[in-house]
Amino acid sequence: MVALIYGSTTGNTLDIAVKVAQMLGEENTELFDVKDVGLDIINAFDQLVFAIPTWDYGEVQEDWDEVWHEVDDIDFTGKVVAFIGLGDQLGYSEWFVDAMGMLHDKIVNRGAQVIGHWSIDGYDFEDSKALTEDGKAFIGLALDEDTQRDLTDSRLVEWCNQIKPSIGLLA
């Protein structure tokens, strides 16, 4: 079973979380709004997907901000983790999906095995804290519902098929 934990202010991240749950199989995925359950639920799962939007100038979304310090107290050893970040690559080009990168850094430092890197091809941004060390990929799926909404569904399908084998699901 995969826990998909999200925070959403405008509803975009919730919409993405629902689509991912459908693509991974609703029988295989449990959705959790971080504002309702906090992070204690993490201990009950070995496979996790975190969906987090970036706000303003590289800020963490408000529901995630409420539990941000708690991430540092969780042992992610033995857990397989994937990330989805939402951002605006044109309006906030210098901070595109930064919150995803910031969450990744906290979690990977606590022992998680990260899956689901995603190519930067097809994006137009200035900088991001969500890049791999070589700068050729995002550490998770980057989505832009402001300027590339038309690419979201195809990106979701490809990314979900990419991570399925790593979380014990058929692609």
Rank of each mutant, 00 (worst) to 15 (best):
D146R: 12
T13Y: 01
F32C: 02
T147F: 13
F138C: 10
A99G: 07
S128K: 12
T29A: 04
M23P: 01
S8V: 06
S119K: 13
D65K: 15
I120R: 05
Q113R: 15
I16C: 02
I163K: 01
D121Y: 15
A3G: 05
L4M: 02
F32A: 03
V108P: 07
I107F: 04
L151V: 09
N43C: 05
Q113P: 12
R110V: 01
Q148L: 15
E59N: 10
F50S: 03
T152A: 11
L39R: 10
K79P: 00
D46Y: 08
Q22V: 03
L31A: 00
T152N: 09
T29M: 05
H117C: 11
T147P: 07
W64F: 04
E27G: 00
G25R: 06
D105N: 14
D40S: 05
S154E: 15
V2A: 01
L86Y: 13
H69C: 14
R155P: 04
V60S: 05
K35R: 14
D46E: 15
D33K: 06
K19V: 06
G58N: 07
G38L: 00
E70W: 10
D98R: 11
G101Y: 06
A142W: 10
E30P: 01
Y123N: 11
F138S: 10
A171I: 04
A112K: 04
I5E: 01
D65P: 13
N28M: 00
F76V: 06
T77G: 13
E145G: 08
T13E: 01
S154W: 12
E133V: 11
T10W: 10
A142V: 05
E66S: 14
Q47C: 12
D36M: 04
T132D: 09
G38M: 01
Y123G: 07
I16V: 11
A82Y: 07
S128D: 08
S154N: 13
H117L: 12
A17L: 07
V80N: 11
I42R: 00
K106P: 06
L169Q: 06
K106R: 14
E158S: 11
V37H: 02
F45C: 08
D124H: 12
G111K: 01
D56E: 12
A82P: 09
L24S: 02
Q47V: 11
G78P: 04
T54C: 00
A51D: 08
E70G: 02
A112P: 06
F96L: 03
A130H: 14
T10V: 07
F32G: 05
P53F: 03
T152Y: 10
G168F: 02
T147I: 08
K164A: 04
H69E: 15
K106T: 02
S154F: 08
R110W: 02
G101A: 07
E145I: 10
Q22N: 09
L156M: 04
F125W: 13
S166H: 15
Q162K: 14
D33H: 04
E94L: 10
V2R: 05
F83A: 01
E126H: 13
G122D: 09
G87P: 09
G58K: 07
G85D: 06
G116N: 06
T29W: 04
N28K: 00
I16R: 00
A21K: 14
G78H: 05
I74T: 12
Q162P: 09
I74C: 04
I107L: 08
D56N: 11
V80M: 08
V81Y: 06
D63N: 04
D56P: 02
F125L: 08
